[in-house]
Design a protein around this nucleic acid. Structure first.
Lengths: 291, 291
DNA sequence: TTGCTCCTCACGTCACGTGAGGTGGC
DNA sequence: TTGCTCCTCACGTCACGTGAGGTGGC
């Protein structure tokens, strides 16, 4: 019989940990003095303790270890737990590898500019969203004002208020000189039908969107796009669907509607505007997020 | 201005998390109603929030994130934190890779025998330990009884009691037919000098010992050695010093000293004996633990 | 007898999640 | 007015570590 201090020294497990394992029932001392409460361990308990430590070292929780050492699990059940653990670890390794890639990207960006990038890219998902939308071809993105007017007239007619910030979808796969295929969308909560040009539809949920937020004029929004493109490339993603701009705060429309109608609203410096740019992405090789 | 619910939905960060970040001072709402306590966020706070999320995603603690977003750290300080984080992650990846290797070893062992191995190997370190010892050559390991007798006579003469379980070091690099170079050791606390044959020395601390515990007769202790050898190979270690046997519970000597002196004590079934076998190891390519 | 060992609370860690119980806003 | 949103505690998580304050054993 060994007292807890010696058992601790010989096993290199702290006394606190041994007491904790006793409390959990993982390693009950062979004998406990009923007057002093002193714990006495038997030498053969090193064997059980070693099993506990070996399983802990594989990353199992103490509860799982309890199951593995106590209940007579069959070989297949043990195998199942090991396989599960293995896939969990593989997932963690992949996640850590992703982190390393992102850290490398930060470091190289920092090496180029010696200051943290203005744009931080994060991965989000979005739920399915019902929208009233209007798709059309415009010469260039800043000239989407007319589409917005027609869409808002429609909402006004039906007495509907948008249920969240409006957004634009860009269907073209590459930068174009002119004739951009875009869709302007206002999220709505109501169940109404569309009209001749306004469509009511549910935008599907997207699992992985790379997003960044742009502050200020649309003249400089290209930098947000560039940051996203760099990030997507550095992290081994590829674009999997129409890009989105979500207008989190649009300083122009309410304030100065006719400027927007003139189609030049975006060409002015407007520090108040906040826009989130979203790239639907998927890991290269994986199936895309939407058909 | 946006209420917390909308800020949460748009950023895909839970309300609870936003409140927590407020409490920590990471993202203070732009305005808090002093009567209701309602939090109101400004749209441009999405930018700061994104930075926080991006750093969280790299694995920084919230406290580190606070430093990174608040105090104007220089480019070099940021670089330093990123480099530190990178090396931490690399360490974690290596640890997870080690776990994967160990899980594979468990799985293949389970595939062979359909039952969990009797021997669980764990890595320990030991502190430096003062011992009285006696080195000699014996025909085979079970015939070390005479060395033990001479060592214990010496201790008895000096009125010294061992301060822990005794152990044997095996100096030979491979299994031999005969003439084993071994050293029997009794740990002692006292400061005494040796004699003609008994040496008093300090065994150096060892950082990485692969250990397993054998229960029962020495006849079957070869299985513990085999388990350790397999484990050492599977985990990319190599042996870096004399192997050790630590006699955690020696059922024979006190009980039946002359059996030991006869040199045959170990050839009998003795279920009460508990022995820890320790292999000093180092990662292949790394410098060995001792000179 | 003295120092050493052991004991049991109780609290802290980290980044939130989960209620409970109550109030404000449209 | 009613349901929805928001608020502040308080407690739980996981695997222990860190004292505080007190007692047993040689």
């Amino acid at each position: 019989m060994i007292r807890i201090g010696d058992f601790s020294r010989l096993s290199r497990v702290s006394v606190k940990t041994l007491r904790y394992y006793d409390e959990l029932g993982l390693i009950k001392p062979a004998h406990v003095d009923q007057f002093t409460g002193y714990r006495y361990y038997s030498e053969d308990q090193f064997i059980r303790l070693n099993r506990v430590l070996a399983l802990r070292d594989l990353g199992f929780s103490l509860e799982q270890i309890g199951q593995l050492v106590d209940t007579g699990l069959s070989g297949d059940e043990v195998r199942g737990m090991l396989l599960l653990r293995r896939s969990e670890i593989e997932g963690r390794v992949a996640a850590e590898a992703g982190r390393l890639a992102r850290i490398e990207a930060w470091l190289s960006q920092l090496a180029r500019e010696d200051v943290m990038s203005e744009y931080d890219v994060v991965i989000k998902r979005v739920e399915a969203m019902k929208v009233a939308s209007l798709r059309g071809v415009v010469p260039t993105p800043p000239e989407q004002g007319l589409l917005w007017c027609r869409l808002e007239d429609y909402l006004k007619e039906h007495g509907i208020r948008p249920s969240g910030p409006c957004l634009t979808l860009y269907y073209d796969e590459e930068q174009k000189e002119q004739d951009w295929d875009i869709e302007v969308c206002e999220p709505i909560a109501e169940d109404i039908s569309g009209s001749a040009d306004v469509k009511v539809q549910v935008l599907p949920a997207l699992e992985t969107l790379a997003c960044t937020v742009h502050h200020g004029s649309f003249v400089t929004i290209g930098e947000a796009y560039r940051a996203l493109e760099d990030w997507v490339r550095a992290n081994g993603y590829s674009i999997a669907g129409p890009l989105r701009e979500v207008y989190l705060r649009d300083a122009t429309p309410e304030a100065d509607p006719e400027r927007r109608e003139s189609g030049i609203y975006a060409s002015q410096t407007d520090p108040g505007t906040i826009t989130e740019v979203q790239f639907p992405v998927s890991k290269v090789g994986a199936r895309p997020d939407r058909a």
